[in-house]
Amino acid sequence: MIQIGGRSYELIQNYKNAWDAEAFKQRYSEVLDRYDYILGDWGYEKLRLKGFLRDNHPKANRDTAFSGITDYINEYCNFGCAYFVLQKTKDARDNKEHKEHKEPREQKGSTKASASPSPENASEQL
C-alpha cells in the first residue's frame, strides 16, 4: 500500500522491477489525484507518470481509459522499458471524509428550505 497526497494506491504491476518509491514521491503531482490508475515508465533514467481512469468512468475516452494502457505503453514508452501501474484504493477514511463533507451541505439546504416561505409553509401558518 502506497500513501501519497491523502490517497492510497496499490502496486498492481511492476514490470522489470520499475517501482522506486523515492522517485515516485519526487515526480508525483496533485493533478494525478483525479485518476484511478497511475502508470510510471522509465526512459533515459527519468520517470514519467501518466494517469488513467477506470473504463466505466463518464470522462474516460480511448486515451485515458485503463483498457488503453497497453496501447499507451506500446506507442509512447521506450521499447522494453521498465514500468509500474498503481491502482487507487478506497479506504474507510476516504469514505468517512466524503460523507462528512456531504452532510453539512444537506443540512444547510434543508435549513434554507424550511426557513424560506413556501406555499406549503404559508398555508400551515394561516
Rank of each mutant, 00 (worst) to 15 (best):
G5W: 05
L47Q: 01
M1G: 12
K102S: 12
C77R: 11
G109N: 15
H57M: 03
S116T: 14
Y37H: 10
A21D: 06
F52L: 09
G6D: 13
S67M: 06
R48A: 04
V31G: 09
F52C: 05
N95C: 01
S116E: 14
Q125H: 11
I38N: 02
G68Q: 08
N17K: 11
A82C: 06
F84L: 08
N61K: 14
D33K: 14
T111I: 14
S67G: 09
I69C: 04
E45F: 05
G68I: 06
H98A: 09
S118Q: 12
N61Q: 07
I4W: 03
Q26E: 04
S118F: 02
H101K: 15
I12H: 06
Y15C: 07
A92N: 11
F24P: 00
Q107I: 12
D63G: 06
K96W: 10
L49Q: 05
F24L: 14
Y44G: 08
L32D: 09
Y72T: 04
E10F: 01
A92K: 13
N56E: 13
P119Y: 08
K16P: 01
Y15V: 11
E22H: 00
I4Q: 11
E97F: 04
H101P: 02
E45M: 04
K50V: 10
L47E: 03
F52K: 09
Y37S: 08
R34C: 01
G80D: 05
E120F: 13
E106N: 11
R27D: 03
A113T: 12
S114H: 12
Q13H: 05
K16M: 00
P117M: 10
N78K: 10
D33W: 03
Y44K: 13
D33Y: 08
E124K: 15
E120T: 09
L53R: 13
N74M: 05
K90N: 08
W19H: 06
A60L: 01
L86G: 05
E106Q: 14
Q87W: 00
R34W: 00
E30F: 12
S116G: 07
S118I: 00
L47S: 02
Q3R: 12
